[in-house]
Amino acid sequence: MAKRMPRDPEKERSILDAAVKQFGTDGFNASTDKIAELAGVSKGSVFRYFENKKKLYVAAVNKAMATLLDVVDLSVWTDSDDLVTMIIRATRYKTELSHQYPSEFALLTRVYAQDNLIPQKVRQQVFKIFTDWQTEVEDTVVTRMIDKMPIRKDLNRDHVKKYMTMVLGTISAEVQQRLEEHPEMKKIEDMGGLIADVKEYLEMAEFGIVASD
């Protein structure tokens, strides 16, 4: 019986790094030949470390997630004194992270969008990895945020968390788009119009849009 060669951690890491980059760029259709070339290994080595393309893809998603978990600082969200500051700071921080880790963000964005090119079973598996992480982060951030707010006693706290998660997600998406469209806005002092809009959105969420008698 042939003796199995020991795994080389450095080679395995190179394959995963290459897989994150190629899957982030080309989706599940990424060429394993390109992944092997980028990693500086043979295609046979790719499949010796990762039995097939599906398992390589799942491992790449886990790698991308682990990379971001190692560097993300949730205090950017939780230590803000008010919601407006939190949204601006957190969105800018997320944008900076996406520029530092473009391959990881690109891959996870494809996972979030549930790329139809990914086989269904794999798509469900990697989407669960993403949503479990997202739920944990949102729960931490929104729970701490709500703890600072005088929530009405007649409201279901879980419903409030779900509602605020949806509201903050929508506002953050607009903030991110505007920050990307206006890279000259580096400091809070440069964001007067954006901050005013965020405040108005949050006031709508807090007080409603129907005029009182």
Rank of each mutant, 00 (worst) to 15 (best):
I118Q: 02
I146T: 08
Y101T: 08
V198H: 06
S80K: 04
R89Q: 14
E10K: 09
Q125M: 04
R92Y: 09
A211F: 06
E10P: 02
V46E: 00
L56M: 03
D147K: 15
T67V: 13
Y57M: 03
P6A: 10
K148M: 11
I87G: 00
S31N: 07
L168R: 01
S172G: 09
E200W: 12
Q125C: 05
F50Y: 02
H99G: 10
R110E: 03
M166C: 13
D132Y: 03
I188V: 10
R48H: 07
D17K: 10
D132H: 06
I146N: 05
M185C: 06
R123T: 06
I87R: 05
D115A: 09
P119D: 02
K53M: 00
K161W: 00
V46F: 02
I151W: 01
L107F: 04
T109L: 11
K53F: 00
T32P: 02
A211I: 12
K43Q: 03
S14T: 06
K3I: 15
R92S: 13
F23C: 02
I88L: 12
R89H: 10
L107K: 01
I188N: 06
K161M: 05
F23Y: 06
F28V: 01
L74E: 09
R110M: 03
Y101M: 06
G169W: 05
L16A: 04
K94F: 14
I209M: 15
Y112S: 14
S42T: 14
I88V: 15
K34G: 01
M65H: 09
E12L: 11
Q177C: 08
M185A: 05
M5H: 07
M191S: 03
M166A: 15
Q124M: 13
E10L: 14
K199S: 09
E181P: 02
D79N: 15
P183F: 08
S80H: 04
V198E: 03
A106L: 14
K34F: 04
G169C: 09
T170R: 08
L117A: 11
I35S: 01
K11R: 15
L97N: 04
K199L: 08
D154K: 12
L179F: 06
H182G: 02
M5R: 15
Q22C: 07
D190I: 14
H159C: 08
N52K: 01
A106P: 01
N156I: 11
A173K: 09
T109D: 12
T165K: 11
D73P: 03
G193F: 13
F207H: 13
V20E: 04
D17E: 13
T91G: 10
L68Q: 08
H159D: 12
E138A: 10
V58T: 08
T25G: 11
D190M: 08
L16D: 00
Q22V: 10
N29E: 13
K186I: 15
E200C: 12
V122E: 00
A66E: 12
E104A: 02
D73A: 10
V126T: 06
S75A: 10
N156H: 05
F105D: 07
L179A: 05
F23H: 01
E10V: 15
K21W: 03
L107V: 05
V160Y: 03
D190V: 12
E189L: 14
R48G: 03
Y112P: 03
Y112M: 14
M185D: 05
K94I: 14
M166Q: 11
T109H: 10
V46K: 02
Y57N: 00
A205S: 06
A196F: 13
K63P: 01
